[in-house]
Design a protein around this nucleic acid. Structure first.
Lengths: 211, 211
DNA sequence: AATGGGATAAGGGCATACCCCTAGTAGACA
DNA sequence: TGTCTACTAGGGGTATGCCCTTATCCCATT
């Protein structure tokens, strides 16, 4: 039996996934999550064979969830199910450890098959994602080495707070550190992501879909 | 029997809606559409009691679909089911003839009830949309329109420069005005768009797709 | 044990952003 | 004519952003 955890902030989408997966007696949905933080929590709690996760979610974005789950549960296979078709998403997700990528507008035909393949240790990428990855393979020069990956955990925390609209004081209060330190972390993020200032940082996040 | 047409570009969402509606023997899904043009076409063809429609769809957006269906099929009740929480969408949809509005993150509990209520000639607005409408009723002065439309030409110029990453000095140089004046314009923009600071201004632009 | 590097934390100093205010000019409108 | 709005410019104060340096801790290498 393939044990699955579902994460999507729209419960109608989760409903659709459940409906599709229960057509098979090989899958069992053991938990659901409606935001990124909950997704990580439920994944760690249930240690599923497959985690199906959206990209844009409240509290913690899908990229971060994929990164952390991949780190802490290396045996958990991750399937990204999203409406985002930009190739950056595909590349970033695969680099962060996703084993599958489906877009929502054609997922119903492929979801069950994708989950099954992931459970057997294989990968599954929809037609769209496959083309992206093939092109990337042909032109490895198109550098997609994501500077976001080079951020430390602390910097990543600060990054997400900043792009969510938090001021230095907010960050300091939230993380229990001084405003000065929070400022410094932001400065390091700005340096590592090669942007001029906080405004450009938010622009960066918007382009990467991390808003 | 309530005859329903579903329109959403994500087939996993349609799958979810079907799953929820078939729990009741009062509903029958007579057609589905994966874009706006098809939604209009299927609605005119099947003349359903209720049309469930998303806002963001290819070919024709949901607003246009609502307007046309309401015009050509005044007896067809329209339920908007969307991920968009901005109040402009709610107001515009209701003005265009929608009889219900649900957000996707809490739709599964309410969808069936909403469809049933619409079929009996009543309306159904989720908690979120209800609050928007109530607030709008209390303050009819709040312009329904996007506050972006209320910016002056100059303010709009400044707005675009800001969200493109320009600093006050950049703006002053670019527009041939003093830095102080540029600052004043930015301040007015921040005030009119009801955001806290420049970072939130960029977030606003990103949400509206103005990046 | 000693060394060096990275992560984290914090403070000083200066630039910029933000917010309060006044005020002049020009064009639109009744 | 008076009034309204948009655009312009500035004064002045506080808050925040941004850069630089320092200090501590941990970890891995020598």
């Amino acid at each position: 039996m393939i044990r699955v955890v579902l994460a999507d902030d729209h419960d109608i989408v989760r409903e659709g996934m459940i409906s599709l997966l229960k057509n098979s007696d090989e899958c069992l949905v053991v938990a659901q999550a409606s935001d990124g933080a909950e997704a990580l929590e439920k994944a760690l709690e249930h240690k599923p064979d497959v985690l199906v996760v959206d990209i844009s979610m409240p509290k913690m974005n899908g990229l971060e969830v994929v990164r952390r789950v991949n780190q802490q549960l290396p045996d958990c296979r991750i399937l990204v199910l999203t409406m985002h078709e930009e190739k950056e998403y595909v590349i970033h997700m695969v680099k962060s450890g996703a084993a599958g990528y489906l877009v929502k507008d054609s997922a119903s035909k492929e979801l069950l098959e994708a989950v099954k393949r992931l459970a057997t240790g294989k990968s599954y990428f929809g037609q769209y994602a496959t083309e992206i990855l093939a092109e990337q393979y042909r032109n490895p020069d198109d550098s997609f080495d994501d500077p976001y990956q080079n951020l430390t955990d602390r910097e990543r925390e600060v990054f997400h707070l900043v792009v969510q609209g938090a001021t230095t004081k907010d960050i300091a209060r939230c993380l229990g550190i001084s405003a000065k330190t929070a400022e410094n972390h932001r400065g390091k993020v700005i340096e590592k992501l090669d942007v001029k200032n906080t405004v450009e940082l938010v622009r960066y996040a918007a382009k990467k879909g991390l808003l």
